[in-house]
Design a protein around this nucleic acid. Structure first.
Lengths: 146, 146
DNA sequence: GTAAAGTTTAGGGTTTACCAAACATTTTTA
DNA sequence: TAAAAATGTTTGGTAAACCCTAAACTTTAC
């Protein structure tokens, strides 16, 4: 049993943002980039990254930047799964366009239980990509409970 | 233009709880009842009710209890609409039972935009009751944007 | 090697949501 | 009806989540 990780909504947003950099770009996110992206003061970004480091979700090197740990990657994937399954729901059920789907998903993804997300996932036949063609990570509990 | 009301998640829960008492029972909610329902210290319930009173959402009389104002009823209905539309979604789309649907709806109702709720409402043909047969209040913007 | 750019620290601030203990009011009941 | 019991409020905290400015420090690029 690993200690349960409790993420705040904002921490979750940082994590998913960093995941994208991590896999799509050059591996690290500087606090300045984070600060600009989230429109906050650099000091605030530093603070949040340090919180994530305390929780062992990122490896943080002062003046250099941060990089997700295995644990961080795992959490980011869980969140991205939620986000992307919600996007699928909004596009398929409500005919939202990808952008609007993303916007609405962002408002609630953090608050949705894994159970709820899995139920949606099953309903749509375990989609493997979101409306903008990004991977939807799988959850071992999802197919098992069919 | 009336000043925009900003409700915290907890305030929203209090408001909807009080709405039920207001229409289904004896019109007032004492702080003790609220404290018991939300499993908090009576002092906390008093504090929250006072916040709602400041926002003119309830009429609060010390040592007696609180009653929703027109504005409070209006806000409560907006929240209950969100909650109940989500319940419909979870029951119809995911075959959740009413209780589980309620539980999951409670986690996200506060964060869902009126737009999203209306889109779901349209998809299900403007249902007028939730899975437990309670009224789903209408939103004038919902049918208009068909 | 120094100046500019980038980053962190220190010290605050606000809001939300709690609690315990002391106090005030209302209700009950003996 | 007066005192005890139940109810409700005030006071004075705590903690977490976000956010900021200003000053100090480190890196980088000339």
């Amino acid at each position: 049993m690993s200690a349960k990780i409790s993420l705040t909504p904002k921490e979750g947003k940082y994590l998913t943002f960093m995941y994208r950099r991590h896999v799509e770009e050059d591996e690290r996110a500087t606090t300045t980039i984070l600060a600009k992206s989230f429109k906050v003061n650099p000091a605030t970004a530093t603070e949040t990254v340090q919180k994530l480091a305390e929780k062992k979700l990122v490896e943080y090197t002062r003046y250099y930047g941060a990089k997700l740990t295995e644990k961080g990657i795992c959490e980011a994937k869980k969140l991205l799964r939620k986000h992307r399954i919600l996007e699928v729901l909004f596009v398929k059920l409500l005919r939202y366009d990808a952008e609007k789907a993303c916007e609405e998903a962002s408002k609630i993804d953090h608050y949705c239980s894994a159970d709820l997300i899995n139920a949606i996932c099953r309903t749509y036949g375990h989609p493997d990509t979101c409306p903008c063609n990004k991977e939807i990570f799988s959850d071992s509990k999802c197919r098992r409970q069919e």
